[in-house]
């Protein structure tokens, strides 16, 4: 399948087949947190083979937690209290540790936000890439290192043989992220989870890393879960979008749906906060206020205090996740009820 929002078929779903990854009702909480609402609540989405799904939202919306939970990598302070994460038919939340270990780094690779702190400072980059193959394929170090050299070349690092013996601090941020990607694809995964892979990098490097990810996606037929807050990246790279706000999914849609017909006030607010190119000196809209912290979520719609379309009597009540079509869902009752029609950012 060719990536890109322009290439979608009518339903946004590839024809036939079970989803590769199916997240159902994922709820993440602090231990003993029965009283407070979850940090992440009832998150449901699918990733089909070869497709890229974006998790977007401001910082603190639970998108990173969601991506960590897929491979069971949540920090010790939080835990999954409900839901399932089916990967190739196996529930990663209830499978054995051994099964989970085989999935991590094998059919599912992961890339993190800050390459500098995410690479082991005391290990050469060659060994860190080779580690994956040694763990999963039982290759000898020398064999795995040779393969690591090929992988470095594949991710666009010149003089790979020499670079194998480098330590992370001897490389630039962009190089480090290439190393992270090389390790993540070392066992030819089917799914790549990328948690804000370009956020910590310079703008020019960001473009290069995205270009690399796009190439790899095409060559390896990778499915991707991309955590980002950059709508440009979403438009450029992804097929489907999951918009998260304060631990809830606000809207779930194919990419075109988000840009042409957003169905949640938060999505449209995000769109209008993006500067428009070619329209210099226009006022940049900002979303007033900030994401509430866990434990301080409003009882009703969680976006209600910041929403410019809110109606007290209605929005103070909890909102249900509603399907508008096969592939477009919203958690805004006013939109679902046809009361509110939002404008998209892109017209024509």
């Amino acid at each position: 399948m060719t990536p890109g929002p322009g290439q979608q078929n009518g339903t946004g779903q590839p024809s036939g087949g079970e989803p590769l990854l199916s997240v159902r009702g994922l709820t993440i909480d602090l231990p003993g947190g029965a009283v407070q609402p979850g940090l992440v609540e009832d998150v449901t989405f699918d990733v089909h083979r070869g497709r890229a799904v974006a998790l977007i939202g401001e910082s603190g919306c639970g998108k990173s937690l969601t991506s960590m939970a897929i491979l069971g990598l949540l920090p010790a302070a939080v835990r999954v209290v409900a839901g399932s994460v089916l990967f190739d038919g196996v529930d990663l939340l209830t499978c054995t540790r051994r099964q989970l270990r085989r999935v991590r780094g094998g059919p599912v690779g992961m890339v993190f936000q800050e390459p500098m702190s995410s690479l082991d400072p005391t290990m050469t980059v060659g060994d860190q890439i080779a580690e994956v193959r040694r763990l999963h394929l039982g290759e000898r170090r020398s064999v795995a290192l040779k393969r690591a050299g090929e992988l470095l070349e594949r991710v666009g690092i010149p003089k790979a043989d020499k670079r194998l013996r480098s330590y992370p601090h001897e490389m630039s941020g962009g190089m480090q992220q290439r190393v992270m990607i090389a390790a993540a694809i070392a066992c030819e995964p089917k799914l790549l989870i990328a948690d804000e892979p370009t956020t910590a990098l310079d703008v020019t490097i960001q473009a290069e890393i995205l270009e690399l990810l796009r190439d790899l996606r095409r060559d390896l037929d990778l499915a991707v879960v991309l955590v980002t807050h950059d709508l440009g990246v979403v438009a450029d790279f992804c097929d489907d979008v999951v918009v998260m706000y304060a631990g809830h999914i606000a809207e779930r849609t194919p990419v075109d749906g988000l840009f042409y017909e957003p169905k949640h006030p938060y999505s449209s607010a995000l769109l209008s906060a993006v500067p428009q190119s070619g329209r210099a000196r226009t006022n940049l809209t900002v979303i007033k206020g900030r994401v509430p912290s866990a434990g301080h979520f409003p009882a009703g719609c969680r976006f209600e205090p910041r929403c410019e379309h809110s109606v007290d009597s209605f929005c103070g009540r909890p909102q249900a996740d509603t399907a508008l079509s096969d592939d477009h869902r919203t958690r805004c009752g006013r939109v679902a009820g046809g009361e509110l029609i939002l404008k998209g950012a892109v017209r024509g």
């Binding site: 491979l71 990598l73 920090p75 010790a76 540790r97 270990r101 085989r102 999935v103 991590r104 780094g105 094998g106 690779g109 992961m110 993190f112 800050e114 702190s117 995410s118 690479l119 082991d120 400072p121 005391t122 290990m123 580690e131 994956v132 763990l135 999963h136 992270m180 390790a183």
Partner: peptide, 27 residues
């Protein structure tokens, strides 16, 4: 144990003795 590189190592499938020996002890 709280460092991101340990999480990365886990994400690559490392655990138990391997994780301790290769990543935790040296750091």
């Amino acid at each position: 144990l709280t460092r991101p590189y340990v999480r990365t190592a886990r994400a690559r499938g490392a655990s138990g003795a391997w994780l301790v020996r290769k990543h935790i002890l040296r750091n």
